[in-house]
């Protein structure tokens, strides 16, 4: 027995590299003799992951204040898709479709401009300007009117789904008192992030004979589909109306999701390795339950992957 041990010691002495390799393995696999988890799953390592994730999130929050427009949200939202999705929701509930009105659309566009220029995200501007001021300002005389706002969404479908799942926005979307709709999709820099704002305005004109006809609507949609208006920079911000596919320098949604999924996946894989290797080698560790950690981490990955979507509504 002693001879065998001496042989072992001599072997490791002669093979320093093998020792290093053996030790490195324990960054990923639990330690049989020390009865501990892998080094990458130690409390110190988990603390480092927490600090790193927090630091990246904080950087993403503060960077736009220092360098506006570098971080942003990718989007592919069109007025024709928003109109189609809205009217599909209405037809599912047996309601008449809303007609796209050019005056209401202009009011929606002015509202989006105002939010970018004055850097706010609200129904009422910091100066107290209300949605109705934009509608009346364009000369649209209404009996009923409403407004829905959205930002940071990727697609038209996500925008309408977002509104549809909020009771107050849904009541606008399915409002039986409305005949017409105005839509604006405008890209610019808000609070330092490049984003696409969607403004949806609803109305019933006082004179109902003034409701836009199908021909007028088709003409407006055709005009919008070929037109991409780009303004001169206003306070360093370039605003684009009806943007085609938007790809910012760094898509903050993609980066934050990828980081969370990578970390979650990495720690999850190490935990799975820990479960498998400990069973194989019969290692009993005096730690918390690896399987419980794995279960909770899987819930996080599933939520991030399948449930969470970008976008805010107001």
């Amino acid at each position: 027995m002693e001879l065998e041990n001496t042989k072992k010691v001599n072997f490791w002495r002669k093979n320093v590299k093998a020792i290093e390799k053996y030790q490195f393995m324990h960054h990923f696999l639990p330690h049989e003799e020390e009865q501990t988890r892998s080094k990458f799953l130690s409390n110190g390592a988990i603390l480092l992951y927490c600090i790193f994730v927090f630091a990246v999130t904080a950087t993403f929050r503060f960077l736009p204040k220092l360098v506006p427009g570098v971080l942003g949200y990718a989007s592919n939202i069109t007025i024709s898709d928003l109109l189609a999705q809205t009217n599909q929701k209405r037809s599912e509930k047996g309601l008449s479709p809303l007609r796209l009105n050019s005056t209401l659309s202009e009011a929606a566009k002015q509202k989006a401009y105002d939010m970018f220029e004055n850097d706010y995200w609200a129904h009422i501007s910091p100066d107290g300007v209300e949605p109705w001021d934009f509608i009346l300002g364009q000369g649209y005389d209404y009996i009923y009117a409403g407004e829905n706002l959205a930002k940071n969404f990727s697609t038209s479908k996500q925008v309408v789904e977002g509104w549809y799942n909020s009771p107050t926005h849904k009541s606008n979307l399915l409002g039986a008192n409305y005949d017409e709709i105005g839509l604006a999709v405008v890209n610019g820099t808000l609070n330092g992030y490049e984003t696409t704002l969607v403004v949806q305005m609803f109305g019933r004109p006082r004179d109902r004979t003034q409701v836009a006809s199908v021909i007028e609507e088709e003409g407006l949609l055709e005009e919008i589909s070929v037109q991409e208006e780009v303004t001169e920079p206003i306070m360093g911000t370039q605003i684009t109306v009806n943007p085609k596919e938007v790809e910012p320098t760094l898509d903050v949604t993609k980066v934050s999701r990828s980081m969370s999924l990578t970390f979650g996946g990495f720690v999850g894989s190490l935990l799975a390795l820990d479960v498998w290797y400990s069973k194989k080698k019969g290692i009993k560790k005096f730690t918390g339950h690896t399987f419980a950690h794995l279960t909770v981490l899987l819930m996080v990955i599933v939520s991030i992957w399948f449930v969470f979507r970008p976008g805010l509504i107001l």
Binding site: N43, I46, L47, Y49, C50, V53, F54, V56, T57, F60, R61, Y73, N152, V252, T253, S256, R257, M259, S260, F263, G264, V267, T287, G288, H293, V296, L297, V300, S303, I304, F308, P310
Partner: peptide, 20 residues
């Protein structure tokens, strides 16, 4: 400490995605 750190990590992974 282990449970506190795992709980914190789980929250931070969700918080990061929900922040943007």
């Amino acid at each position: 400490t282990e449970y506190l750190l795992f709980g914190l990590l789980v929250f931070l992974l969700l918080f990061t995605v929900l922040n943007f």
